[in-house]
């Protein structure tokens, strides 16, 4: 699967792609995806707060979200996100350990830069990342959930960027944040301390205890909240806020006259240029245009300036279709 192609083989693939009608060796149309297989929840990673596994053709990525409580200060008063991508050595058998490391680092930095909240005075706090990191806050300025997003590329048969983002999106959409409420320590009232010294019965003491450890019921509201506790509810917690806006990536493999989506490993080697577009959509139903969260050009080819805007606009259409298909599968409105 992971063999390197000769020039003749590459030329064969490109000639058939640029012929009319375009031909792909698995019979798909130029903008067709392979079948997308999705598994999520406890069947993938039972110990994670959210997890998903996506398989597109031979490309397989597992992503899992783990939430951990972290002390934060006022400078950083929201939850954070840490991303990490690991590539299984089996995915890239033809590469040396160093080259695999480089791929891991590149994918990690792409994820991290997409998901880390933008710290700017300008953003009015309604971007996906800032909404999400706000909903990860437990006690403002004191404690927050740190979200660890770990993805493992089990095998790569082409189009690893799209599949990676699909898996991350599915894992984030699957994540449940445990419900918490703030706890406040109230000053014991004057009377209680004097009475404590007295010889009143045990029943009274219990009542006073309850008074001292009064809890503030409004979660995340209490001004002098000292700590938090997990709410005792039947469900496992709430969905992440703004999860429907989690981004997807669409990779356009660009040839001089056309582009293809979801390239296989062989096609990726033959086509010199990849344009990775990362989009987030507020809601699919409205005609509001998508938000760009990242754009990369990868590979040794060049794209004429005149084609670029067309490619980007078409990319948005593909991303929209992909998101709506995934939302149906994940039951996200």
């Amino acid at each position: 699967m992971a063999t390197l192609l000769s020039r003749a083989e590459k030329s064969y693939i490109i000639t058939s792609l640029t012929s009319k009608p375009p031909l792909r060796h698995d019979g798909r149309g130029p903008v067709d995806y392979r079948l997308i297989g999705l598994a999520r929840g406890d069947s993938v990673a039972p110990l994670a707060n959210g997890s998903a596994k996506i398989r597109v053709g031979g490309t397989e990525v597992v992503a899992a979200v783990r939430l951990e409580v972290e002390d934060i200060d006022l400078e950083l008063d929201e939850g954070r996100m840490r991303c990490n991508v690991t590539c299984s050595p089996a995915a890239y058998p033809h590469l040396s350990a160093n080259q695999q490391d480089d791929i891991q680092k590149d994918l990690t930095s792409l994820l991290q830069s997409t998901f880390s909240p933008t710290k700017s005075h300008d953003s009015n706090g309604d971007s996906f990342t800032s909404v999400m990191s706000k909903s990860l806050t437990i006690l403002p300025g004191r404690k927050a959930w740190t979200m660890y997003l770990d993805a493992v590329v089990l095998s790569d048969a082409g189009n690893v960027h799209d599949v990676l983002f699909l898996a991350c999106r599915a894992a984030i959409c699957d994540t449940r944040v445990p419900r918490t409420r703030a706890v406040e320590y109230a000053q014991p009232s004057k009377g209680s301390s004097t009475r404590r010294a007295g010889e009143t019965g045990g029943e009274m003491d219990v009542e006073e205890e309850a008074d001292i450890w009064k809890t503030a019921v409004q979660s995340k509201r209490a001004a002098r909240a000292a700590d938090f506790e997990l709410e005792d509810t039947a469900d496992e917690g709430g969905w992440l806020e703004g999860r429907e806006r989690c981004p997807v990536a669409v990779t356009l493999n660009v040839l001089p006259t056309m582009h293809i989506l979801d390239a296989t490993h062989a096609e990726e080697q033959a086509v010199p240029l990849k344009l990775v577009l990362i989009y987030s959509f507020a809601t699919i139903s409205t005609q509001k245009e998508g938000e760009f969260m990242g754009m990369r050009l990868l590979g040794p080819g060049q794209v004429p300036m005149a084609y670029l805007s067309g490619l980007i606009q078409e990319g948005e259409t593909y991303a929209k279709q992909l998101v709506s298909a995934l939302n149906v599968q994940m039951e996200i409105k």
Partner: peptide, 21 residues
């Protein structure tokens, strides 16, 4: 008249990205 690299980060709309380009 060709492009060799695009790198975009942060949140922008498609129209704004095209304007920047």
């Amino acid at each position: 008249g060709t492009i060799t690299n695009i790198w975009q980060s942060g949140n922008v709309t498609t129209k704004e990205a095209l304007q920047c380009i």
